[in-house]
Write a protein that binds this DNA or RNA. Structure first.
Lengths: 233, 233
DNA sequence: CAGTGGTCTAGACCACGCA
DNA sequence: GCGTGGTCTAGACCACTGT
């Protein structure tokens, strides 16, 4: 529980974190008020505030007005995932990106998709199935539904050569999304598309995006075996 | 590109985000300096700063000293995952948590584990295999390696009744970790332990934790079919 | 109602990186 | 060098919530 000086809110954060790591304060303990910590460490209260915000975001402490700051008894492991554009992801691996449209259809939403998108009634969508290739080999298969009520311009895009995701990113930025990760066994169709054995275990990510309450698109991306998602501390 | 008033840095953030959404500023465009935005929106520069930090963290803009703030051409989808303690996770689903030790062994690390933990030489570890149960049924199987050099006290813990993860959380807080998500097909042993068909697709999360450069534990958690990881925007 | 964190401000200085 | 974002400060007021 030493007190050192000089240099930035991260130092302050690490000091406070240090008190927890060295068990000066333990799971559930209440930490001093920001103002007292500021006085002890010789900085302004707002600097302690920033340090504390970082610790709270990391799931290490819990703050409540009037209640004060407590060490979390069950520190949450909070990971930040960056989900890059598939093209970028492949290029960062040193591969050559390729794209292949499989099929498009105009359909009204089946109930399961409508529920995912939070629609109160069925709306007409464009369903786009496509393959992302890495060095000419299948890498990710995507099954996407685009809400034609909220993004009708997609009909003017030639999806045989332009990737739907990239068009949407440029033209339909979203401000809310939802994200799921799960495992799925390859059925005959997927196995054929990805060129992998039937029953391979595949990592699937599902994403839905909205502008306010208007759903834009929902996509199910099925990756080849061996694909991993990495997160950083 | 309207200018409204009153209430908080989130309003400021949403205003700026609005300029991007309504395409007043497009992919790659340079936004005005913080100070000019502050003047236009009638707030202090530090308020714009906070709003901008949020947009930058969300992957919507990119900031560089001297270079200014630009709209990201490829907005990264950045998701935050909360990985709860398994007990908490099960209880939040309304299930009854159970724990069952399968096996413990003292071993020196095989190369693949040593590499994951960043060890320069093999060190003695305690390997703990255990099942987390939800309403008496298998839910997650975990295969854990605990570094006896850095956490020798684990040998004094009765792991038949105390969950290794919970002991570590209380007694060996970490300050760095690494995280992977992948899919795996159930082999005969796992299928038997989890009581699922062989070749089921299972979601696997692997985590390694350190205190500074000292590795504490690495764990591979294999979940039953249907398990999903959810992220929030 | 009172204590604590949350936010805002105005101003200052620092650090990085482009010209 | 110099422009821009990054951080720090001291003080003020607000908002939530436990008592």
């Amino acid at each position: 529980m030493t007190v050192l000086r000089r240099q930035g809110w991260k130092e302050i954060r690490d000091q406070i974190h240090g008190w927890i790591l060295d068990r000066s304060y333990r799971a559930g303990d209440k930490l001093p008020r920001d103002e007292d910590i500021a006085a002890r460490l010789g900085c302004a209260r707002s600097t302690v505030q920033r340090a504390m915000k970082d610790l709270a975001d990391a799931g290490i402490v819990e703050r409540r007005r009037k209640g004060g700051t407590h060490v979390r008894p069950d520190p949450i492991a909070r990971a930040t995932l960056d989900i890059p554009v598939t093209r970028t992801e492949i290029e960062q691996r040193g591969g050559v990106y390729g794209y292949q449209l499989v099929r498009t259809q105009r359909l009204t939403t089946p109930p399961v998709i409508a529920a995912t998108m939070g629609l109160t009634r069925a709306e007409e969508h464009l369903r786009v199935e496509a393959l992302h290739l890495c060095d000419q080999r299948p890498f990710i298969f995507e099954d996407r539904w685009i809400n034609l009520h909220n993004a009708p311009e997609i009909l003017d895009v030639d999806l045989t050569c332009q990737n739907a995701n990239e068009w949407l990113m440029q033209n339909k930025p979203y401000n809310r999304y939802d994200f799921r990760i799960l495992a799925q066994s390859a059925d005959a169709e997927i196995a054929h598309l990805l060129d992998v054995p039937v029953k391979s275990a595949l990592l699937v990510t599902e994403r839905t995006t909205w502008i306010d309450d208007a759903s834009i698109t929902t996509v199910r991306a099925i990756a080849i075996p061996g694909y991993q998602i990495l997160a950083k501390s």
